[in-house]
Amino acid sequence: MLIVTGTMQVPPEGIEAMKAAAAEVAVATRAEKGCRVYAFWQSVEEPTTFRVYEEWDDLDCLKAHGKSAHIATYRAKLAEIGAFGRDIKMHEPGPMTTL
Rank of each mutant, 00 (worst) to 15 (best):
M1S: 11
L2N: 03
L2I: 08
I3G: 05
T5A: 15
G6P: 05
T7V: 13
M8E: 11
Q9T: 14
P11D: 02
P11F: 01
I15G: 00
I15H: 00
I15R: 00
A17W: 00
M18N: 06
A20Q: 15
A21E: 00
A21D: 00
V25N: 03
A26I: 03
R30Q: 15
A31V: 02
A31H: 12
E32K: 05
K33M: 00
K33F: 03
W41I: 07
W41F: 10
Q42P: 00
Q42C: 00
E45K: 12
E46H: 09
P47N: 06
Y53L: 14
E54K: 06
W56F: 03
D57M: 12
D58T: 05
D58G: 12
L59F: 08
L59N: 09
L59A: 14
L62M: 13
A64I: 04
A64Q: 14
H65Y: 10
K67V: 11
S68A: 10
A69W: 13
H70N: 11
I71S: 02
A72V: 13
T73G: 04
Y74V: 02
A76Y: 09
K77F: 14
L78Q: 12
L78C: 12
L78G: 10
I81P: 08
G82W: 01
A83R: 12
F84N: 06
R86K: 13
R86P: 05
D87H: 06
I88Y: 07
K89E: 13
M90L: 14
E92W: 05
E92F: 05
P93I: 01
M96A: 12
T97G: 08
T98M: 15
L99V: 14
